[in-house]
């Protein structure tokens, strides 16, 4: 196990496209960090730079305190789990798992022991003689994990490993990966575009956009206090509600209004989580028309349109008493409005 440190990492591709733009990131020893962001934000490029599959334009990658920036992948002691699993189709499950040990010329007895150990950990020892084509998506994922584990690397890299699985298997594998991380105590860097995965699995989440890390922190702190409008919009499902308007310093004025304690007056965007919208007779309530009610069981999502045309979604506990076409009044729960500058999306309050 070793810590990963990435300092001022820049990757410019041929043609001038900037994939990674001055990223500094630390994953502590034994920590589980998720890189999350929309596709094309550079998160996979960072992963590939750390793995050594790409060479950085500038910057430094350190694993366990050792500068590995210019080392080939095989000398970095990292294991990677690919989105499509990258299992060798011509090899059996056993040989796939043993591959990293074989190419490193580990003693045969040691190979047998470690392959069995890894397979038992992931409960795939019954599949040893099968070829990847004969496995389900979940089983392939486990084989890919076993192949990563068997080497006992300093650092695990995950490149959207769950996105090819169906929803049920994905939720299950998520929990198993967290358990695996606990048991191995391994350092893990996990790339995903799915903020739910990032929030539920990682101890630290780094949100990226356009090659930069926008914000890094514990999942709930990102949810509660997004430093910018982009982070606020990216974290949370359904997505945060936004309404454009003005900050007067003491109040936000727009299609929704609420009390602020901002220092400056400027064009602003109000962002409110769906569970922080209050339906009913709140003090600052604005009229809206219900356009859709989605009952989810323990909670309901109520979608509505303000008179000014903005769409909102509110989350309320249990069954919602409204129907399509109902006129409701909607307001912001006290102290829950997040306000951002309209100019650059930075936090106003």
């Amino acid at each position: 196990m070793a810590a990963l440190g990435v300092t001022h990492l820049v990757k410019r591709f041929a043609g001038g496209v900037v994939g990674v733009d001055d990223v500094t990131l630390t994953v502590g020893e034994g920590a589980f960090t998720a890189l999350v962001g929309p596709s094309g934000c550079g998160k996979t490029t960072i992963l590939r730079l750390v793995a050594g599959l790409e060479e950085p334009t500038s910057g430094e990658v350190r694993i366990g305190g050792r500068d590995v920036t210019w080392l080939p992948p095989r000398d970095r002691d990292v294991a990677m789990v690919f989105q499509n699993y990258a299992l060798y189709p011509h090899l059996t499950v056993r040989d796939n798992i043993a591959f990293p040990l074989r190419v490193r010329r580990t003693a045969p007895a040691e190979i047998v022991r470690r392959v069995r150990q890894a397979a038992e950990l992931l409960e795939i020892d019954a599949l040893f003689e099968r070829k990847p084509a004969q496995l389900s998506g979940g089983q392939r994922q486990r084989v890919a994990l076993a192949r990563a584990i068997v080497r006992e690397p300093a650092l695990f890299l995950f490149d959207e490993p769950l996105s090819n699985l169906d929803a049920q298997v994905r939720a299950q594998t998520r929990a198993e990966l967290v358990a695996l991380h606990r048991r191995l105590g391994a350092t893990m860097l996990y790339v995903t575009h799915d903020q739910v995965e990032a929030m539920t699995m990682a101890q630290t989440v780094a949100v990226m956009a356009s090659g930069r890390v926008l914000q890094e922190g514990a999942p709930m702190s990102l949810y509660r206090d997004p430093a910018s409008l982009a982070v606020a919009k990216f974290i949370g499902s359904p997505s945060i509600n936004t309404v454009a308007g003005r900050s007067t310093g003491a109040r936000f004025e727009g299609a929704l209004s609420c009390v602020l304690h901002a220092a400056e007056a400027s064009g602003a965007v109000l962002a409110v989580r769906p569970e922080h919208l209050v339906l009913g007779a709140a003090a600052d309530a604005s009229p809206a028309t219900v356009t859709l009610v989605e009952p989810l069981g323990p909670e309901s999502l109520v979608r509505m349109r303000l008179a000014s045309g903005e769409e909102l979604v509110a989350r309320c506990a249990g069954e919602a008493p409204w129907h399509i076409g109902d006129h409701v009044r909607v307001g912001v729960a006290e102290g829950r409005g997040l306000c951002y500058r309209a100019s650059d999306g930075s936090r106003l309050l």
Binding site: G52, R74, A86, Y88, H90, F99, V103, R147, R151
Partner: peptide, 23 residues
């Protein structure tokens, strides 16, 4: 990704050819 996986698994160029590409 298969060749990249082999690189990460520690295979050198000849091993990548012999163990992945050729099969």
């Amino acid at each position: 990704s298969l060749l990249e996986a082999a690189r990460l698994d520690g295979a050198d160029a000849w091993q990548r050819f012999r163990l992945v590409v050729w099969p």
